[in-house]
Amino acid sequence: MHRHYPPFLFAALSLAPALHAEEASVAAEQPATLEQRLAESERHRNELAVQLQSASSDSAQLARLRQENQRLKQQLHDVQTRQPERLLNEEQTWYVTGAATALLAFMLGALSRGRRRQRREWLN
């Protein structure tokens, strides 16, 4: 007895060696592609490592600057608490100077007048 096979089975069987050859060429291509991707990945990893190192040094520098800033703030606070407060501010100092000048002028005027018993009158 002779069996009859469907025609598509022969076509599929005839294509199998071609598909296997294509898979072999893809498999041969894959290591080269994978090596290229690996090289790119290593280069990218190295760039990220450099960025991470610079970021960590930046953060260390930032921490040092913050610590120095806190130290300077504390020094400023200590100096300000040790200084006595000014008695008068600038505006009040000007008022006191003006009042002292007016008082001095009044006293000099009173002393320069002397003691006169009669008033000077206008002559007609």
Rank of each mutant, 00 (worst) to 15 (best):
Leu108Cys: 12
His2Ala: 10
Leu111Thr: 11
Ala28Ile: 08
Ala16Arg: 01
Ser25Ala: 15
Leu72Gln: 03
Val50Lys: 08
Pro17Gln: 01
Leu38Phe: 04
Trp94Lys: 11
Gln61Val: 05
Arg120Phe: 07
Gln80Phe: 03
Ala49Met: 10
Ala32Gln: 08
Phe106Gln: 05
Gly98Val: 01
Gln67Pro: 00
Phe8Gln: 13
Ala24Val: 00
Gly114His: 07
Asn46Met: 07
His77Ile: 02
Ala39Gln: 14
Arg66Glu: 15
Arg3Leu: 15
Glu23Asn: 08
Leu65Trp: 10
Leu88Met: 06
Leu103Val: 02
Gly114Leu: 07
Thr93Asp: 09
Leu48Trp: 03
Leu15Gln: 09
Gln61Tyr: 04
Leu104Tyr: 00
Trp122Cys: 11
Ser56His: 09
Ala102Tyr: 00
His77Lys: 10
Arg37Gln: 14
Gln70Arg: 15
Arg66Trp: 03
Leu9Asp: 02
Glu90Phe: 06
Ala18Leu: 14
Glu40Ser: 12
Ala110Gly: 11
Pro7His: 03
Ala60Tyr: 04
Gln74Pro: 02
Leu72Trp: 02
Arg113Thr: 09
Ala110Trp: 10
Glu90Val: 11
Gln67Cys: 06
Ser41His: 09
Ala102Val: 04
Ala55Tyr: 07
Ala32Thr: 14
Ala11Asn: 12
His20Tyr: 07
Ala28Cys: 03
Glu68Met: 08
His77Val: 06
Leu103His: 02
Ala55Gln: 11
His2Gln: 12
Ala32Asn: 10
Leu65Gly: 02
Trp122Phe: 13
Leu13Ser: 05
Lys73Asn: 12
Ser14Gly: 08
Gly109Thr: 11
Gln80His: 03
Phe10Ile: 03
Tyr95Cys: 08
Glu68Ile: 05
Gly109His: 07
Met107Ser: 06
Ala105Tyr: 00
His20Met: 07
Tyr95Glu: 15
Met1Trp: 06
Met1Val: 10
Ser56Gly: 00
Gln70Ala: 15
Ser25Tyr: 07
Thr81His: 11
Asn69Ile: 00
Ala100Phe: 01
Trp94Asn: 05
Pro84Asn: 04
Gly109Ser: 14
Arg3Val: 14
Met107Phe: 08
Ser57Gly: 00
Ala63Asn: 12
Leu19Glu: 02
Ala27Pro: 03
Val79His: 02
Tyr95His: 13
Leu19Val: 06
Glu29Trp: 09
Ser56Glu: 15
Gln80Tyr: 03
Glu42Ser: 03
Ala28Glu: 12
Ser25Asp: 15
Gln61Glu: 14
Glu22Asn: 08
Glu85Asn: 10
Leu123Val: 13
Glu35Thr: 09
Gly114Lys: 04
Asp58Asn: 13
Asn124Phe: 12
Glu47Asn: 08
Ala16Met: 05
Glu22Val: 05
Arg116Leu: 15
Glu29Ser: 13
Glu23Ala: 04
Thr97Tyr: 09
Met1Asn: 06
Arg37Leu: 15
Tyr5Lys: 04
